[in-house]
Structure formats: structure tokens, C-alpha cells
Design a binder for these strands. Structure first.
Lengths: 252, 252
DNA sequence: TAGTGGTCTAGACCACTAA
DNA sequence: TAGTGGTCTAGACCACTAC
């Protein structure tokens, strides 16, 4: 583990690229996070330790950490330290799920796996996952129920070369939220996602799985989730019943 | 214009409330913004001027401004100054509209007002706007077309006591985006909004207005928009056609 | 050239946590 | 009490804009 992470404060030959010190520190921190030097849920070194390691002032490290914390990659806890984000804490499980009950109450959730297969990536999926159509993907289908009522039909696509050894049995035995499971079992941290939302009519399959009539309006949510380096790691299409739930969003 | 905006760095009697200096500065800046001391699009005083005015260091003012800029209330422009946000710039018009063409191209937009009335606030609207049911609200209905194809049916509710003098003629003559118009004409800045999204079936009215068959799945977007101090200033229900457009969202 | 925001430092002190 | 992140200061210098 070489520790020669020094940085030159002012680079005299700035051909085209000038980047402030704290941005360079941020890149170094991201590299360590991506490489797993500190795992989800663990503390990273203190600001003073990092300042010594990178040969900069505490304030500069602070600004780098501030930005990573603003992006939810790190979590600061006064008096305790700075920790790597995780999907595995009660408070932030289902962090990416925007579907919310119309009344405030917290529903019980359960998941049933209804499909699992490996196949060559369909063109559309390959494009979104930055794969070729000769690469293998894993397809998982499941139904999420809230208070025992089927509410979400998910169709999930993962790159097989990353999720090595993921099997039908494994996914059936897993009881954690998927993203928490991915962190612990496959070392994949989902950091960010883009969603496209539409209204569609339930087809025969969706109607059967969600116990609604064919043609019922459903919310279709297409998600691409990314890990470090903006690398896409999951494509997911969800069909949501929205008669007693809504997709919430905040604009600013 | 009294200028006695001083602040005591450390309050010895912190009964329960401790708030850092930069937070107190932030509150003072918000008050000035709310009171219109600096209008949308205008520059606020320089950091050094504000530091002198509030008797704190530049760094403390900076941190207060940083947070306001992160909330999109202010915009920093290096070398020029810090400016009050506005919906009236080409770059950020339709800042709150998440509906996006599936292909990337930028459609032409047009708006047709199809309804205007004043009435006592219905209970549901009164609740969302923090009004009583004896208060008057303004209701505007319109159709937004993209590339001359009707795509959004909007039903908008405004508190009449704030939007004084808003008339059917005025709203018909206005050519700006609504929120830009509200800023200039009524001094109301829309800073933030919450949205609830659902899939619904087009009723007879929506079908007629949007040129689709009754029962067509539509995206229903319910929005509450807020100005300074989290005061709700608009309730809006939009029905979106999403066959060639989608509601985009980023999660992190 | 002057004025603005942006970066970086060094040091002091405060608030919070845990032993 | 020691260690962490959080606040605040004063000052130097850099990058960008406009005149």
C-alpha cells in the first residue's frame, strides 16, 4: 500500500487544465473509495490525518469532504468521524424508492422473486449498461408488496461480469434490500440513479402480477443506477400502482 | 433604511438555541431577499461589503452565501458578483418542468388559457395554500403544446390576496413563463416545489383538451410551489401525455 | 487596473461523542 | 479527557470580468 499521495499546490505549466487542490484531493478520495480502502459503513481517517497524508491544510481536506458529503457519498457525524455511505442502515434503506403512501403510515414490505435468467444483453439494455450485445446480463423479476398488497412489478438487469456467482438461489435467500445486499456481497455501491417516469396501461403480464385489470394506468419508472466513476451497474423498469401511493419529488 | 444589522459572535446565555454565526447571517440575507432589498436578477453586495455590514469575516459571509447558492436562491458568478435567482433567464426558464422529449430535441412551446375564475377556496386547495375556505383563490386552466401538439393540461390555483389585480385579460396577454411573470408583475419568487406523481386515466375533459381517447393513461403531477419562508404560493395539477415525453428525475 | 468571487493556509476555539 | 467534526478569523494569493 504505497502512500505517496502528495500534491503540488501550484502547477506552473497549466496547459489547459487548472484544478483546485481540493478537487484533486476529492479525486484521490474517490479513488480510495472505489478501490475499497474504506468500505460502506466504515469511518474514513480524520480530517487531520488526511491533511497530513495529502500534505495540505485541514481546510482543504474539509472542502473535498464537504462536496462528497453533499453528494451523499460520505456522511459526517460530529464528534465521531466521517463515514462511507451505505444502503444498509435502517434510516436510508430504500433510499432510491420514491413511492410513498398517500397517508403517512409506514407499510410493511415484502419481495417475491418471480423470474431469474442469464442471457446475452438485449441491445437496449446493453446500451444503457455500456456493454456489448455479446456480454451476458442477469435478469431478475420480482413483485414488491406493501402491507401484503402487490404494488410494484420490477424488471432488473445487471452486468453478469460484475455480479459474479449471482444465482437464483442466492437472490431467493437474500432478505436485505437489493442495494444493501449488492454492497456486502458483490462490493457494488449504488451512488446515484437517473429515472424516467411515464404513465402506461397495464399489459396482461402486469395485470396478472399486480392483481389489476388489463389497461389500468400504471406508473412506469425506468432507472439506470451508477457506481463510482459514473459506471452504470443496473437497469431497472418498475411498474407502480399509484391509487394509494404516489411518486414524490422535490424541485429547486 | 436602518443598517444596524450587527450580530454577537457568542451568546453566553444559550438557553436552548445555539445557531452558528453564518446561519444567523443567512437568516438576515433571507429577510432582505424576502423584503425585496435586492430583486431577482440583481446583484447583492460583495462579500466584503456584507462582511462589513454584518461585522463578521468574509469567510462567514461566504458560508452563508454558499448555502443560499446551493439552494438556488443565489447564483455566484466569479469576477462579476452574486446575483438573486430568477425564472427570467433563457437558461433556467421552465426550471421546474421535468417533462422532457424522449429524443433530445428542444420543442417549441405555446400556451393557451382555457379557463379563468375567482372563487372561495375549496377545502383541499385551502389546506395546501394555508388559507381558510372563506379566502378567495384564482383558478387558471391552460393547455401547453409542444411543437403544436397539446401535451399538458394544467389546473392552477393562486391565493387572490397575493396576486392582486390578476385578471383574465392580463393572463391572456402575458407571453412569459408563468413564474417569470409572477416575479416581475407580482413580486412573487417561486423558490422550491414539491410534486406528487401518479398514473391516471384521462377523463372526458382531459381527453377533449389533449386530443386523446378517454381512459388513456396520463401522468398526473400535483405541485405545491413555495416562496420565501416556506409560504405556499401556488397549487397546480398537471396532466401530461407521456408517449413521446418522460418525467425525468435524478436520485442520490 | 480594480473589483469580484475562489482557493489555501494557520491557528484558535466550540460542540459533540465516547471512554 | 482526548479525539472528532464545526465555526470563525485574518491574511495572502489566484482566476475571472470589465473597464
Amino acid at each position: 500500500m504505497s502512500e505517496s499521495n502528495s500534491v503540488s499546490p501550484s502547477n506552473p505549466e497549466r496547459s489547459t487544465a487548472y484544478s483546485p487542490l481540493y478537487q484533486q484531493i476529492k479525486v484521490l478520495l474517490l479513488k480510495s473509495l472505489d478501490q475499497g480502502e474504506w468500505k460502506p459503513g466504515e469511518a474514513i481517517p480524520s480530517e487531520l490525518d488526511l491533511a497530513a497524508r495529502f500534505q495540505v491544510s485541514q481546510g482543504t481536506v474539509r472542502k473535498a469532504i464537504d462536496e462528497l458529503a453533499a453528494d451523499n457519498l460520505l456522511i459526517r457525524r460530529q464528534g465521531k468521524g466521517t463515514f462511507v455511505s451505505t444502503h444498509n442502515e435502517a434510516k436510508v434503506r430504500y433510499r432510491f424508492l420514491r413511492l410513498t403512501p398517500d397517508d403517512g403510515h409506514q407499510p410493511t414490505t415484502s419481495s417475491e422473486i418471480i423470474g431469474f435468467s442469464r442471457l446475452k444483453a438485449p441491445a437496449a439494455i446493453a446500451g444503457l449498461l455500456a456493454l456489448r450485445t455479446v456480454d451476458t446480463v442477469i435478469n431478475i423479476q420480482r413483485v414488491l408488496s406493501f402491507d401484503d398488497k402487490p404494488t410494484i412489478l420490477d424488471n432488473i438487469w445487471l452486468p453478469a461480469n460484475v455480479f459474479k456467482g449471482l444465482s437464483s438461489e442466492a437472490v431467493n435467500q437474500n432478505r436485505e434490500p437489493l442495494y444493501a445486499w449488492f454492497e456486502g456481497e458483490y462490493g457494488v455501491s449504488m451512488l446515484r440513479a437517473d429515472e424516467s417516469v411515464r404513465a402506461v396501461a397495464a399489459d396482461a403480464e402486469a395485470a396478472r402480477r399486480l392483481h389489476v385489470s388489463q389497461g389500468t394506468p400504471l406508473l412506469q419508472v425506468e432507472r439506470v443506477a451508477y457506481t463510482y466513476g459514473e459506471r452504470p451497474m443496473e437497469v431497472r423498469q418498475g411498474l407502480y400502482i399509484t391509487d394509494h401511493f404516489h411518486y414524490r419529488n422535490s424541485l429547486n
